[in-house]
Amino acid sequence: MPHQTKNFLMLHFVEFKKFYGNYPALSIADFNIEPGIYWIKGVNGSGKSTLLKSISGILAFNGDIILEGGISIKKQPVAYRKLVNFAEAEPLFPEFLTGMEMVKLFASAKDAPAGQELHFIESMKMHSYIDRPIGTYSSGMLKKLSLVLAFLGSPKLILLDEPLITIDTESLKILYSWIREQHDQGVSFMLSSHQALDVDERLDAGELLVENQTLQFTR
């Protein structure tokens, strides 16, 4: 089947299957996702994190995922990972590194423009602790750091797993503003959450329903 042009296709799943041992955790035979902002709904254990980690390249799986009509995670893994960023629900980083050292590592890996990180660090008000060892961070500080890392570089797709937890209301508003800014520049988003997104923030989010006819989630 020919792939659609990148102007109309963000992701294409090709015979995607994820197993944990012999357990079939997730199966998506053939599915296209257009550019946009998507909210992935589902209860604990339904496969939300597995899906996002697979798309990001953290988890191995059978089949393939094609980004923007031509970049395969299997055939062009380096190019693919440069364009897909991911923030975990409960991030873990080397405790001996400082937050800024972690930012610099990610910025280098993602070929981020010089000084790009300053905007995100400043708006999240992280200056007072960004140079401290990560081992001293609270869960909220870790969450902010993981979000900053997810926005570095020139991604085409940003994956946010449970972005609404361990983050204060003011910081959440800042995150929403980042999403709006990046989406206006052509970046797509996939967010998973147990909680409803705040429609008052006008994210204009699409909804990727976890249903049998759309995505096959096996519990």
Score class of each variant (00 low, 15 high):
A107Q: 02
I71R: 13
N85V: 02
L83S: 01
S27K: 14
L51I: 08
N85K: 00
D30R: 08
K82F: 07
V14F: 00
M10F: 05
I37Y: 11
S128F: 07
S128T: 11
P91A: 09
I121S: 03
A25G: 03
M10P: 09
V78C: 03
S139L: 13
D131I: 00
G47I: 00
I58A: 10
I73H: 04
K82L: 15
K110F: 11
F93E: 10
E34P: 00
G70W: 04
H119V: 06
E90H: 12
G36D: 11
F16C: 02
K74R: 15
F16D: 00
L11F: 04
F13E: 07
A114R: 14
P77C: 08
A79R: 15
F13D: 06
K75R: 15
H119T: 09
N44H: 10
Y137Q: 07
Y38M: 10
H12W: 07
F86I: 06
E122G: 09
I40K: 13
I33K: 12
E68F: 05
G57W: 07
K41A: 10
L83F: 03
S27Y: 05
G99D: 03
M124F: 15
I73E: 04
N22T: 12
A112H: 02
D64E: 08
G36M: 09
N44S: 14
E117A: 11
S138L: 05
P77G: 11
P113H: 04
G36E: 07
P77W: 04
S46P: 06
V103K: 03
D64W: 02
A109F: 12
F96D: 13
S27A: 11
V78N: 11
Y137E: 02
I33S: 06
A87V: 05
A25K: 01
S128P: 02
P24A: 09
S139I: 01
L105C: 10
Y23L: 13
I130E: 02
S108F: 10
I37R: 15
I58Q: 14
L11G: 02
D111V: 01
F96N: 14
Y38I: 09
A60D: 14
K125Y: 05
I71S: 12
N62K: 15
T136R: 08
S56A: 15
